[in-house]
Nucleic acid binder design. Structure first.
Lengths: 210, 210
DNA sequence: ACAGGAGGTTAGCGTTCACTAACTTCGTCC
DNA sequence: GGACGAAGTTAGTGAACGCTAACCTCCTGT
């Protein structure tokens, strides 16, 4: 059971980038409903702080029924995190593959990450908090995807700001991820204002790097 | 028991800002040893992912012996988080109370937070991840301290950058916390280089805010 | 010398929790 | 119209874990 203040309805509006299947238009499959609800709960209480029964209840079924859809609780987290990592890497790779000015590419990359963080704050939270709870194999896979995503940023950043050496660029990338991923703590501003602010802040930071 | 890759010795070198007691010079008390070891473990595995026996083992005693020093596992986390929050608020308040240019005050605030994040990456991690695991009363207290700390930043920021309205300033503060608190993911650069980089990035971001 | 308390030990209790087993329900296809 | 499989239910099992109880071992002060 979840201990403290768990207000009304969970299950946010799982928009486009939820991992894999719901890329089409139709209503989300049961699997995806479950993943969305679990993401919300994991973000609020941590992976270990959420029980099987809690996840079931969030989609209107009992706990054990989840095992008709997932092999284990670990597998749910695994699917969630690899989905996010693959989405980010694919989107990032696609952006840097475009032709254009280096500055525009970098700005596009920033905006892509900002949009994701704004649309999926729960996934962002889980992504950066629950790596430790992953099964070994999944963790290796997610780590590799994350490293590749960082490399995408490093090359884009060093093209736009050539004075940066690789270690500084890598650290700057991590720092800007932290900046953008602050969306879960940022409930004060209207969506679009926040998107613009975060984009400005991120680019301001990156171009200030030495 | 902690499941996966838990390498050698935990218990980092608990430097100055560890909360309360070890402010003097002498060897840290048992309590503080335990808090330091627990912080490291909580950062790596999450509060719920660490057992009483793990914490005990990290300081060379058995699990139940911890109850000679703390009322409960929750109380350990509570003391840890309120200690951090109080340290940050006190340090921040002291900084903005100094006389000087608004820009210098803001830079000092940034540098203060950067130094803390660099010296205590484990505490930073726990501070931003494990709020949900806190007992109700402790959570309220920590939340209030955090809000006050944000307010310190907001006023310093708006003095230095008057065009910012309050909501934008608040969001920018949260974003910059995220940036600075990325230190746990930043193992690539020498300590001092990273401190300088993060300070530049943070100030670059803040002055880019609109 | 020894009383007492601080700080450690092992054994065990009760609860929580992931997962399984066995059974039910219901829509779909031939 | 009945076989079947997908998706749900309740009951239960075994392990993990927080914490307590009871006991031991010193160090310290009088």
């Amino acid at each position: 059971m979840i201990p403290s203040a768990a207000s009304g309805s969970a299950a946010g509006s799982a928009a486009s980038p939820s991992g894999a299947s719901p890329s089409g238009g139709g209503k989300p499959s049961r699997r995806d409903q479950i993943l969305a609800a679990a993401a919300e709960l994991f973000a609020q209480h941590g992976f270990r702080g959420v029980g099987i029964d809690d996840i079931g209840a969030a989609v209107g079924i009992t706990g054990p029924a989840l095992y008709r859809h997932f092999r284990s609780k670990d597998a749910m987290l695994g699917e969630m995190l690899t989905g996010i990592s693959e989405y980010l890497l694919a989107g990032g790779t696609e952006r840097v593959g475009r032709t254009g000015e280096a500055d525009e590419i970098l700005a596009g990359l920033v905006r892509f990450h900002v949009d994701f963080a704004l649309q999926q704050p729960a996934l962002i939270t889980v992504h950066e908090r629950s790596l430790a709870s992953l099964a070994d194999e999944d963790r290796r896979r997610v780590r590799r995807l994350q490293r590749q995503y960082v490399e995408v940023w490093v090359t884009a950043l060093r093209t736009a700001v050539p004075r940066l050496d690789e270690p500084h660029a890598r650290s700057a990338a991590h720092a800007v991820f932290g900046l953008i991923n602050s969306t879960p703590h940022n409930r004060h501003l209207p969506h679009e204002d926040l998107a613009e602010l975060l984009t400005r802040l991120a680019l301001g930071a990156l171009y200030a790097a030495k």
